[in-house]
Design a protein around this nucleic acid. Structure first.
Lengths: 197, 197
DNA sequence: GTCTATAAGAAGATAGAC
DNA sequence: GTCTATCTTCTTATAGAC
């Protein structure tokens, strides 16, 4: 696939913005911040994106693609759905340093936008949907009936987000480190429960 | 205790700002917003607070006071520490409507400030400290050795925050409603565990 | 496609009359 | 203590040359 020069410029804008939105939040990141970080002049950025909101939507798509790639990798590396659920927990632990500094990229963005920028948050919630869909599918493959699977996915994601938030608030990556076992145990317990059903 | 007229004006500013900071976030709330909501003219607000940051610190103190009052009420209404822990979960469920709209006041504020306004977030984290202290104390009164109590408190608070976040992201108060049972069960399980120790 | 200059408005904060 | 007018800076966005 050809990658034109303009595609490269666009990508540089999106990557720089994505990084800034994560580290400073969307609303505290100014257009000038993006200009400086990307090295792309103001007018040029407006050639690619009509508004700052459009840049945000592009970063969300960018993240969605990254998530898809990640899930494909998990599918390739792990044969069983239980291993993939554990892989999810391991990802949280692996990200503990940046989580302690800036929070969860997905959770903090949705929290920021969810208050009074509903339309943007609706776009950002697609990130959550993607995770819920994937986790839910794993529970189905374990053998649960479809109905409870989504609730299991919500419960697992909620616990992950809770740990991410505490890790960020206290700026202590060790919280994620030592709490992970409880999530592994929870996965095991749910699977044990399955045999009863 | 005498409540002077100037105290009243100050309180109106703090209450209006507190409401706005919760509903719009700190950074998206402008000085003009506070002027309009409180009905107090610009210059007058600057008589009470030198900067917008100072208003935020005042709202944090305001919330800390409200939390103290709440805990005193819980102590009066419930004799046993287990009942108080359950009361905490019940509070989360009771707040589900506003949580679905605006998130957790404490969690969303700390998430917003934690990225690149560390000094302000340090002040805001006092809200978390207050909860951790109170919950930790309940576990101690149940009979646990002091060391694990703080971790139990962190775990309970994390799970609450996780549910609050999912409730907010999906704008669905029912998530908190149906997930509360798992928290009640968790409290029971921890207490059962105590007998083993 | 690239880039600079600048418009138009909103932000936080101040000066000073009353 | 109260209130209005204004300053300065920063914001997003546009115009238009190259």
């Amino acid at each position: 696939m050809m990658v034109s020069r303009s595609d490269k410029t666009r990508l540089r804008i999106v990557q720089s913005a994505n990084r800034l939105f994560y580290r400073q939040g969307y609303n505290r990141t100014s257009f000038t911040d993006i200009v400086k970080a990307s090295g792309v002049p103001r007018g040029n950025i407006y050639y690619y994106f009509k508004t700052k909101d459009e840049i945000l939507l592009a970063t969300i798509d960018y993240r969605l693609d990254a998530i898809s790639v990640m899930f494909e990798e998990w599918d390739r590396e792990h044969r069983t759905p239980v291993e993939r659920l554990r892989r999810f927990v391991r990802m949280l632990v692996n990200s503990r340093q940046s989580t302690a500094e800036y929070g969860c990229p997905m959770g903090s963005l949705n929290t920021e936008l969810g208050k009074d920028q509903r339309q943007l948050q609706e776009s950002a919630s697609a990130l959550f949907d993607r995770f819920l869909e994937y986790l839910s599918l794993q529970f189905q493959e374990i053998g649960f009936r479809p109905e409870p699977c989504r609730n299991y996915a919500i419960e697992l994601l909620a616990r992950g987000q809770g740990l991410n938030l505490m890790t960020h608030v206290m700026h202590d990556p060790e919280i994620l480190n030592r709490s992970a076992d409880a999530l592994y145990d929870w996965i095991d317990a749910v699977c044990a429960n399955k045999k009863i059903l």
